[in-house]
């Protein structure tokens, strides 16, 4: 098992996994979309607009999940100094930021018909926005350090500080929001969940997770090649993939 942690072994192993995981992600997402868009009934309160939930909620889950994965990989890279963990952490950031952006934009598109406004300072949307800033910080830090090892370790420290802060930020925004809650704005609630709505929601969540794994592996693979470019095995890989 441990031998897969060596970049040399990980590279072909991940290469074999990616098509399968990618395929599974596409199938799950397609099935989830079919159930969500065509099978699930309209919500009696929110009408058809609630269907945005099927991407909004799973991508909100993903945005936090990916940050935790990134911080855990960062911690692992600081403790054990494994290259694979460093690469994993830096591959997480753009994907997590993408999910955060999707959450924000779909939340805004859901808010317009429900609240009558594109942006409300809803607690969850606001913490999501701050989460986006945290992701951007990690990415900007990585981008401005040339040495990949130093970049990975600095980003790991920042991700760890961020992961400790996220609950605090979330709690304070929640608290701030209850004080300033405008009366007319009701929360973007999940409609009372009917099994026919739960199935697509969970399918979409699983599909996003699979997608994340596949895309992280793709990113890790080329980053490994870049980092190990002076080794013999990379030269062989380059030779064989001509």
């Amino acid at each position: 098992m441990l031998s897969y942690a060596a970049p040399k072994n990980f590279y072909p192993f991940a290469g074999k996994l990616i098509p399968w995981i990618g395929f599974a992600a596409v199938v799950t997402l397609a099935f989830g979309l079919y159930l969500g868009l065509f099978v699930a009934p309209a919500d009696y309160q929110q009408g058809q607009s609630y269907r945005i939930m099927f991407i909004h909620v799973p991508s909100a889950w993903m945005s936090m999940f990916v940050y935790v994965v990134m911080a855990a990989a960062g911690a692992a890279s600081l403790v054990w100094k494994t290259k694979l963990a460093e690469v994993l952490a830096s591959a997480c950031a753009p994907i997590g930021a993408s999910f955060t952006l999707i959450t924000l934009v779909t939340g805004s598109l859901w808010g317009k018909p429900m609240w009558g406004t594109w942006w409300a300072w809803d607690a969850r949307l606001t913490s999501e926005l701050i989460l986006l800033f945290l992701y951007i910080g990690v990415m900007a830090l990585q981008a401005s350090i040339d040495d990949p090892r130093r970049a990975a370790r600095a980003a790991a420290v920042l991700a760890l500080v961020g992961v400790v802060n996220i609950p605090v930020i979330h709690f304070s925004v929640e608290w701030w929001n209850t004080l300033h809650q405008p009366a007319s704005v009701s929360k973007l609630g999940m409609p009372s969940i009917h099994p026919s709505m739960l199935a697509p929601l969970l399918l979409m969540a699983v599909g996003f997770k699979l997608y994340f794994v596949a895309m992280v592996l793709v990113r890790m693979r080329y980053q490994i090649l870049e980092r190990e470019r002076h080794t013999q095995w990379v030269a062989q890989v380059v030779e064989s993939e001509k």
């Binding site: 979309l33 058809q48 945005i52 909004h56 993408s98 999707i102 934009v105 779909t106 598109l109």
Partner: peptide, 21 residues
């Protein structure tokens, strides 16, 4: 049900970002 524009643009945006990724 009158929400088509919002629903489809939400799905469209998510697809765009995921495909870009």
């Amino acid at each position: 049900g009158g929400y088509g524009l919002y629903v489809w643009s939400a799905y469209g945006f998510a697809t765009l970002i995921l495909v870009l990724n």
